[in-house]
Write a protein that binds this DNA or RNA. Sequence first.
DNA 1: GAGCTATAGTACGGCCCGTACTATACACAT
DNA 2: ATGTGTATAGTACGGGCCGTACTATAGCTC
Lengths: 180, 180
Amino acid sequence: MSDNATRLTGTSFAVLTLIELLGPSTPYELKQALERSIANFWMVPHTTFYAEPTRLVKGGFLSERQETGGRRRKVYSLTDAGRSVLEAWKCSAELTPPQLREEGVLKIFAGADPVPVFRARCDWHRAKLAELEGYLEAVTGEDPAWEGVRASLVVGVAYTRMMLEAMEGFLESQAATGSP
Amino acid sequence: MSDNATRLTGTSFAVLTLIELLGPSTPYELKQALERSIANFWMVPHTTFYAEPTRLVKGGFLSERQETGGRRRKVYSLTDAGRSVLEAWKCSAELTPPQLREEGVLKIFAGADPVPVFRARCDWHRAKLAELEGYLEAVTGEDPAWEGVRASLVVGVAYTRMMLEAMEGFLESQAATGSP
DNA sequence: GAGCTATAGTACGGCCCGTACTATACACAT
DNA sequence: ATGTGTATAGTACGGGCCGTACTATAGCTC
């Protein structure tokens, strides 16, 4: 009946999911996988991410053992409790609202000129698009267990491309009316 | 030379901008304005938001006085330091990367069926779109100082509509192929 | 075997934030 | 005038988050 149970956040489920996909893993392996996938739609700073497995062990959702050679890193595996909360989360229909933090729009709100803001964001989204397409290419033809991984990258690519096209359209329309 | 200066986050600039627009304000007035505008692209939980003016006073960016009647609420105003960091931020070209946290894609990554996820998100975006259109209508024809407010709401409406259409398109294509 | 660079983390302190609770104002019935 | 319901306007608390700075090991190269 303890009420200070480990709170499970999106970051927790990100870690659990990665271990389910990869099998027993070290924190760095998890982090590498994260950055090529989940981090693009569920951002986690690395210091938070490294802390998460420890929390999950404390909550009984992961078990931990030490590598015997090399750096003697810790290797984490799912426990039955971990597997079961992960399954429950996947099946549940509940979704926390999407959270967006876009400093560019904040500046526009404050009265800044939208053109440089969108130009900067176009560059950012162009780079991101190339990055995501690279990740997607790397997982095509993989194991069917990775279907969700592929699907999420497809969503990410579509989203990024949509944003990029919308902003490019805006900038072109501005260029047409802005200067003679 | 103190190096533990108050860190200024997006939330800080949100508060500073709102006070610049509204003039001296109480926390609740700021929160009301926030929810009808900024919170849609820079989410802040209310407990964080209520704490922010206190931090900004400590940093010297806001000054504080007490209402004399009624609830004797605190009224915050910009100091010169506050006005100056706000201006510097508006003019600077730097932007932190856009931060997205979308639990739906996380579930798809984990292998969940995308259809219920997108259906839930469609409902959410439809409601959000109606809400934003309401806010936008409420500020049309206002003071020219509110130009940025209008522009940011226009961006928000365009974004939400784009997301909605993309998801509806996906669901229709699924319906066409998924069942006979 | 010293230095360089990439890899693989930890320490710390301030900030964030979800849950729960508090408190005041106003309406309207009693 | 007093109860009681509801919207308004917050505060308390403790664990989680996170940016900056630092540390440490592995392999490479000279």
